[in-house]
């Protein structure tokens, strides 16, 4: 057993074999999405709740497709955090949800750490679909998978992550994941958005875009949020774009076989020029496909395992297959859970 954790709250703290296991699984799940009948019965009768406190059609849809391809039932709950603040607290919501006995909760929340809070109050697996400026582990996993497919490896690569790193959960999850897998991570952006403290977390900090892209294997563009460019972090969107828009010129500083990732949706002409976005380096469509595969893998690993644990105690009395005990025990012994 290579992934014994009860939840996926972030990539921080995961080991390289654990990340490899999830990526390897995701590769197998990609094949399911290529079939004519894109559905397997693995999670039949299981319920996955998508609890979204922020609008995100993209991520929610991806999780929903993933769950459905595994035959799980999905329930979508959307709440705006502001209306929730007036009424039911997240803790109350957690308790109510727990009473419905879901088999997993996928949560997106504007507050960093909200999935941790949820995990303390319910006993089913929690999958973080993005919390505040903290982590977005499935996004980073799909980025890692895309990089691994395109480059054949992750270790030894240099990855530049460009933009509003300060507020980016994608940047953090990628930092943790990439570093664990042996890649070098460079954060590129202005000091207001890339504070020097990140160097303590193992990132190299570069303020100049051209210098930051020098000899990199991968460029990961972060989406710039227009509302942040309010004159406090940066004078204006134009000013930002003047310095950090990914142009063909800047890309030329990178390695010849560089690939460019973007978590989408893109602000063309602001953080990325159309020439680059539509150019040969862009792997944005791979990212979408890999997103579903990664989420299938995560759901299957967390929910399928849970089913196993819930039933393994009764196996002997059913006289079904005594192997379960033999198989389950070394896994527990090995992981210490």
């Amino acid at each position: 057993m290579l992934f014994a954790r009860p939840h996926l709250l972030g990539l921080e703290g995961l080991t390289a074999p654990e990340i490899d296991f999830l990526l390897d699984s995701a590769e197998s799940f990609k094949e399911v999405s290529e079939r004519e009948i894109k559905k397997v019965p693995a999670l039949r009768g299981r319920t996955v709740v998508n609890l979204f406190y922020e609008a995100s059609t993209r991520t929610r849809t991806s999780f929903e497709i993933a769950a459905k391809r595994l035959s799980a039932d999905t329930i979508n709950l959307s709440a705006s955090a502001s209306s929730a603040a007036k009424g039911e607290t997240l803790t109350d919501t957690a308790r109510n949800l727990a009473a419905m006995r879901p088999d997993a909760i996928v949560v997106r929340h504007p507050s960093s750490g909200a999935p941790d809070l949820l995990a303390r109050h319910v006993d089913c697996p929690i999958i973080n679909a993005g919390d505040g400026a903290h982590e977005h582990p499935t996004q980073a996993l799909l980025d890692l998978l895309t990089i691994r497919e395109r480059k054949g490896r992750i270790a030894g690569l240099t990855v530049a992550i460009v933009g509003d790193v300060l507020h980016s959960r994608v940047a953090r999850s990628n930092l943790f994941g990439l570093r664990t897998m042996g890649a070098k991570v460079r954060f590129v952006g202005p000091p207001t958005l890339v504070p020097p403290g990140f160097s303590e977390l193992g990132a190299e900090i570069v303020w100049d875009l051209h210098e930051g892209l020098k000899d990199v294997d991968v460029v990961m563009m972060l989406r710039i949020q227009r509302e942040r460019m309010n004159g406090r972090y940066f004078s204006s969107l134009d000013e930002y774009s003047r310095l950090y828009c990914l142009s063909a010129d800047a890309v030329a500083r990178a390695r010849e076989d560089v690939i460019i990732l973007h978590p989408g949706p893109m602000n063309r002409g602001v953080e990325i020029s159309s020439t680059v976005a539509d150019g040969p380096y862009s792997v944005i469509m791979d990212q979408v496909t890999n997103g579903v595969a990664v989420r299938m893998a995560v759901l299957y690993v967390l929910v399928g395992r849970r089913k196993a644990e819930a039933e393994s105690e009764t196996v002997d009395s059913e006289g079904g297959a005594p192997v379960a005990l033999a198989a389950a025990s070394p896994r527990r012994a090995a992981t210490g859970e």
Partner: peptide, 12 residues
């Protein structure tokens, strides 16, 4: 506190 820990946790 603003520092490596706040950056790691994504807290302001």
């Amino acid at each position: 506190h603003e520092g490596a820990v706040s950056l790691r946790l994504g807290l302001r």
